[in-house]
């Protein structure tokens, strides 16, 4: 029987083509024009684009609504991120049916950051499910067409199901076991947290290649020295490599705004295109997830430069 492709992302990953995905982070707004425009800009370079669900526990526009509108108005397929932080299993189930009705094809099932990290720390953290349980729930919805108690769904939705993974985790063994649990629960693909250290990406891919599930490695182009510095200091477990940091620091001293911009872009293109080429050449990575929130313009030249 010929394989039925649920989404373009699935088609691309199944074909074995090195697949790029992007990420959009709509914030406290009802106006998505800016994000639709960004999606249009990267549309020919990425296969699909994540839409975040209240990232870092900041209260933003619903990721379901944004996923739908961005996909509809830009024509770029979205990956609807759904976390366990704010919704119990009833609400998540109901949103998943809603997503199906709206033509969402991909979901990324995550636990979510803790409420205390965000801009509304007074909120009650829900965490009725964890990511592994959520993946399993979506799997059953898709494969068996039933809810968590086995009750049938009339026209169940079809989703290509994604999971998160963290190659930077230390210790790594519990993370690898969790990866296995997610595979067993039914994850179709993985997108990792940001990795700068190619060696970490390599060893993680080596450990996980036996599962034969596509792993898309997350990268984070750094728009400016300020962004890099913030990232380096505030994202635990992720260190911006020193040579990259130094190059950005040096670029930050260029007084002419346009020249500075060009230099920043050049540094990113150099660093990340060789990172991606190395991934392509030496690992089983299925692709690259470019988390360039607010720096979408880097995606087209970066993808070109990585060919």
């Amino acid at each position: 029987m010929p394989e039925v492709f649920i989404s373009e992302l699935m088609r691309s990953l199944k074909s074995g083509k090195f697949t790029f995905t992007g990420e959009l982070e709509p914030e406290k707004t009802t106006n998505l024009t800016r994000y639709v425009e960004a999606a249009k800009k990267i549309k020919d370079y990425v296969v699909a684009c994540n839409v975040t669900d209240n990232p870092q526990s900041f209260a933003y526009i619903s990721s379901l609504v944004a996923s739908y509108i961005i996909q509809r108005d830009s024509g770029l397929e979205t990956i609807y991120q759904i976390t366990c932080r704010d919704r119990n299993r009833i609400a998540i189930f109901s949103d998943l049916l809603g997503a199906g009705a709206l033509g969402i094809k991909n979901v990324l099932a995550l636990t979510g950051d803790h409420t205390t990290l965000g801009d509304t720390p007074q909120a009650k953290p829900v965490f009725d499910l964890d990511s592994v349980q959520l993946i399993k729930m979506v799997r059953r919805i898709v494969d068996e067409g039933v809810d968590m108690n086995g009750r049938p769904i009339e026209s169940p939705p079809k989703f290509f199901i994604g999971a998160g993974a963290n190659p930077n985790a230390n210790p790594i063994e519990p993370e690898l076991i969790k990866f296995e649990k997610k595979v067993n629960a039914g994850a179709d693909f993985f997108q990792t947290q940001v990795v700068f250290d190619i060696e970490k990406a390599k060893s993680f891919l080596k450990e996980t290649s036996k599962y034969n599930v596509p792993v898309i490695i997350g990268i984070f182009p750094l728009k400016s020295y300020g962004v890099a510095d913030y990232f380096d200091k505030n994202v635990p477990g992720v260190k911006v490599p020193k040579d990259l940091m130094d190059a950005l620091a040096k670029a930050s001293e260029i007084s002419d705004k346009n020249l500075r911009r060009l230099k920043y872009d050049e540094i990113n293109l150099n660093y990340f295109s060789s990172f991606i080429k190395e991934l392509k050449k030496t690992t089983s990575a299925a692709g690259c997830h470019i988390m360039s929130v607010g720096y979408e313009e880097i995606i087209p030249p970066l993808v070109e430069a990585s060919r």
Partner: peptide
């Protein structure tokens, strides 16, 4: 703090918890 049942979340860093 998340009542996880299947292993550490992505917020674990060097064995420590993102909360607090």
């Amino acid at each position: 703090p998340k009542g996880m049942l299947n292993g550490p979340c992505g917020g674990m860093y060097e064995g420590k918890c993102e909360v607090g």
